[in-house]
Design a protein around this nucleic acid. Structure first.
Length: 835
DNA sequence: ATTATCGACTCAGAAAAATTTTG
DNA sequence: GCAAAATTTTTCTGAGTCGATAA
């Protein structure tokens, strides 16, 4: 199906990229845990523990019942094999770089102890059967664990209980009040930075006129980040917009598809659907059985509604190629349009954006995002989506709900139509909404990323992640404790949290049968995780968007043991790994540490934290190129951590070869310069012995190829020039030439240049080689890694902006215009800003 | 009281379009 | 200086997360 284009990561290669510090982190961590928690393991202690819990064992028997008894194991067939064509995640053993926090916390060892002693007694410890009859080492753990666990649990629960109660009661209001203090704390920092930076900005503008234009309007812009009011429960007082734009009505082309070899006349509605299919010919979807089956089912339904009955019965007898060809022709025509025609289209598009692309929020003009209603087509699910190919119907105004200010004029629906309804809800961010027919999903027209609405929630998101920094040490202590807990549910929760924290896994909600089978942390199944003694866990599953996550990780001893337990008989393929855990439980537990804390916050935190840490390796005295390479490297580390991938372009290998040859060509040129240099000044032989060295990577074979290549290119060039000249002559009515008289200017022989000039040339060539080499490295490392997603969504932009200041790099070098606009709110900050 | 569903929004890669580089 | 190729940016919309609400 849906063959994802072949893409794959060599984990071997990835390993090279890994920081050696990873291991250190791990080691440190595990030793931490032993320091903190490991009590002497004596068999008597074991027994004692067991005994004392035997009661609990009974009462807790239901602990054995998986949360999702309802959800029996999924059909294994679907699960077992990861399609070969899915790409592998990078990295054989990457750890989240955030582990450092553990180390920093000098109190790691102290804190737990005190807490422990307090609470241990009160906590009931539940024993599970599993624990009992388990591996021999299991028992050892119990002793210290129970103690520990007890404390952890109690303290954990106690503190938050108060909070929780509030939370339970709470409606928006409570949440707000809870959030506000945090906000306030932050506000000064933001505010402080806001004003002073502005001055600086002006200074910059002086140097750089072009930017001045771009950011000049700043003064008029709504500087919401200055008031520090991040209350987003009420999003506006007044709001107006022009409504969404509907796709143009279908214009029949009259091209006949064939059925059983015979041309078939289709009525417009069916022709449109047939044309949708013709549009995917040549893609992987064409070979995808599910896609074709779903399409054909819906195609038949549409055909049935025709006035004239249609003979089409079997997909195999359909031939859409005439329509496909027509589409290709249209494409050609579009390509061949004159400049004027293209210009006209562009202007029309611009005019549309001018009208519909903006909304007024409290009088401020802000950019709307997707103001176009999605056009009909064939649903293109990703991965093995059961509904892929299903006909996505045209959305009618009657299905659309408009959200707009009470006083504002309601936009006119298309002629002859009415809006489904009109509401005035200022607690939501959407301007319009409708329900899509394929998956019954709700779609929204929302503001663009540059809008203050989005900016505010972005800032909020990153501030939340920063707040996690304050709690992370405790959270880590707690889940490390929890790894050995007697209660299976706690143990699972702790193990899951360990993965989410270390590996930046997604939470992993459960999915329905009518969706692609993908998983996240909580929804991992038996077959997604394998163990390799002594301490390696191998993850191999399809995550969001059916992107393969493959990772071999060395984990704490206890984690390894736990997975072994979680996978123990009678569990088998298709069964949930964490059968007593789901995202609701996990997130609910997390809120005890911090309001608003949920699994995804760890990803943001981890990404930004890692990024900032990685940026420290920027060479302060390096060239601009080197600095930017360091930036991109850091970015890449984050992308790898988050498993952000992209398909390798078909041309990649060829492109790599080309650019490598380019370097070799340069090297050859350099060798010529060296030779000339030595000829001109033979004394250099002694002074500069390196001039005698051969260039690596440049063999006779290559030189031959290179020279021939140059020759051919020259021939080509001359031939083209001639052709052009002749055309010109023809136009002027002159006879064509056989040959251009002007010979290429003969380059000055190197030997005739001065030593200085040669030295200069040598240096230039060296630089060129270095830059190109860096490009190669960059390109190869980027082959399967998509940097954009993390840059846009996970990395706090203030880290980048602070970095630019510190290393004197123009922001334009790392943020394109959209990014600069999107992160405008972050551009004013103190010099010493840290994530 | 759970659990299932819904609603709203963030985040995701592919594809299309625009821009820059190259030869 | 131009066309083609390569690269970057933008658009598009599907796929998650997560809290609220209904059953």
């Amino acid at each position: 199906m849906s063959e994802q284009p072949l893409r794959r990561r060599a984990s071997v290669k990835a390993a090279e990229v890994l920081k050696s510090s990873d291991n250190d982190d791990m080691d440190r961590d595990s030793s931490d845990s032993s320091d903190d928690f490991d009590a002497p393991k004596s068999s008597s202690a074991k027994k004692a523990t067991k005994a004392s819990h035997s009661k609990a064992e009974v009462s807790d028997s239901d602990d054995d019942v998986p949360l999702s008894a309802r959800k029996q194991s999924k059909p294994t067939a679907a699960n077992g094999n990861v399609p070969q064509n899915k790409r592998a995640a990078n990295g054989s053993s990457r750890n989240s770089a955030a582990n450092d926090d553990n180390g920093n916390d000098s109190e790691t060892s102290d804190a737990p102890v005190t807490k422990k002693s307090k609470t241990a007694a009160e906590k009931k410890v539940d024993d599970e059967n599993e624990n009992g009859d388990n591996e021999s080492d299991e028992d050892d753990d119990d002793v210290p664990l129970s103690k520990k666990k007890a404390n952890g649990d109690v303290k954990a629960k106690k503190t938050p209980v108060g909070k929780k109660d509030t939370a339970a009661k709470r409606k928006l209001k409570v949440e707000e009040s809870a959030v506000t203090p945090a906000k306030k704390r932050k506000t000064p920092a933001i505010k402080k930075s806001g004003t002073p930076v502005k001055n600086e900005k002006k200074g910059e503008d002086d140097d750089n006129d072009e930017n001045a234009d771009e950011e000049e309007e700043e003064e008029d812009q709504f500087a919401w980040w200055k008031d520090g009011a991040l209350d987003t429960s009420e999003k506006w007082k007044t709001m107006e917009h022009q409504g969404p734009v509907f796709p143009p009505a279908y214009v029949p082309h009259g091209i006949k598809m064939k059925y059983n070899g015979a041309p078939i006349e289709l009525e417009p509605d069916s022709e449109e659907v047939a044309t949708f299919f013709a549009g995917i010919i040549g893609t992987d979807y064409e070979q995808n059985k599910t896609f074709c089956a779903n399409f054909f089912r819906d195609f038949l339904t549409v055909l049935k509604k025709q006035k004239k009955t249609c003979p089409i019965k079997e997909f195999a007898k359909c031939d859409f190629t005439p329509i496909y060809q027509h589409l290709q022709e249209q494409k050609e025509l579009r390509k061949a349009m004159t400049k004027e025609q293209k210009q006209k289209i562009k202007e029309e598009k611009l005019a549309l954006e001018e009208k519909y692309g903006w909304a007024l929020f409290d009088g401020r003009k802000e950019k709307v995002g997707n103001f176009r209603i999605e056009p009909p087509g064939l649903f293109r699910g990703r991965g093995d989506h059961p509904k892929t190919g299903t006909l996505k119907l045209r959305v009618m105004p009657e299905q659309v709900t408009i959200n707009i200010g009470k006083e504002a004029k309601v936009p006119e629906p298309p002629a002859g139509h009415k809006w489904g309804s009109v509401v005035h809800d200022n607690t939501v961010a959407w301007l319009a909404t409708w329900k899509e027919n394929v998956n019954d999903n709700i779609k929204y027209v929302l503001m663009a990323a540059t809008s203050s609405l989005k900016g505010q929630s972005d800032l909020k998101k990153f501030e939340k992640a920063r707040e996690l920094k304050k709690h992370i040490a405790k959270i880590r202590r707690d889940y490390t404790d929890g790894l050995k807990d007697k209660v299976m549910a706690t143990r699972q929760l702790s193990t899951a949290l360990y993965f989410i924290d270390r590996l930046a896994l997604r939470a992993g909600n459960e999915k329905g049968e009518d969706e692609a089978d993908t998983v996240g942390c909580c929804s991992l199944r038996f077959e997604h995780v394998t163990l390799e003694p002594p301490n390696k866990v191998i993850f191999d599953f399809l995550g969001k968007d059916s992107i393969r996550y493959y990772n071999e990780v060395a984990v704490d001893e206890q984690v390894f043991k736990n997975i072994k337990i979680f996978k123990r008989e009678p569990k088998k393929e298709g069964d949930m790994l964490f059968d007593r855990l789901n995202t609701a439980i996990l997130n609910k537990d997390l809120t005890k540490y911090m309001t608003g804390l949920s699994a995804k916050v760890f990803r943001t935190f981890n990404a930004s934290y890692t990024f900032q840490k990685e940026l420290n390796s920027t060479p302060a005295d390096g060239t601009m190129q080197e600095k930017i390479l360091a930036y991109n490297r850091a970015n890449r580390q984050v992308a790898i951590l988050c498993n952000h991938q992209r398909t390798v372009s078909k041309a990649h290998t060829a492109q790599m070869g080309k650019i490598q040859d380019k370097v070799r060509g340069y090297k050859y040129e350099r060798s010529l310069i060296k030779k000339a240099l030595l000829e001109v000044d033979p004394k250099l032989k002694k002074k500069r012995p390196e001039l005698l060295e051969d260039e690596s990577d440049v063999d006779d074979d290559f030189v031959q190829r290179y020279l021939t290549g140059l020759e051919e290119k020259e021939k080509d060039r001359v031939a083209k020039a001639l052709e052009k000249e002749n055309e010109k002559r023809k136009a002027e009515g002159k006879a064509p030439l056989k040959e251009l008289e002007k010979k290429k200017s003969v380059p000055t022989p190197l030997e005739s240049l001065s030593v200085e000039k040669l030295e200069k040339k040598l240096e230039d060539m060296g630089k060129r080689i270095e830059t190109t080499k860096l490009q190669i490295i960059d390109k190869d490392e980027n082959k399967t890694t998509a940097l954009g997603t993390s840059k846009i969504n996970y990395i706090d932009p203030r880290i980048s902006i602070a970095w630019c200041k510190k290393y004197d790099v123009d922001l334009e070098k790392i943020f394109n215009r959209s990014l600069r606009e999107k992160f405008h709110w972050a551009s004013h900050l103190d010099d010493d800003w840290e994530f």
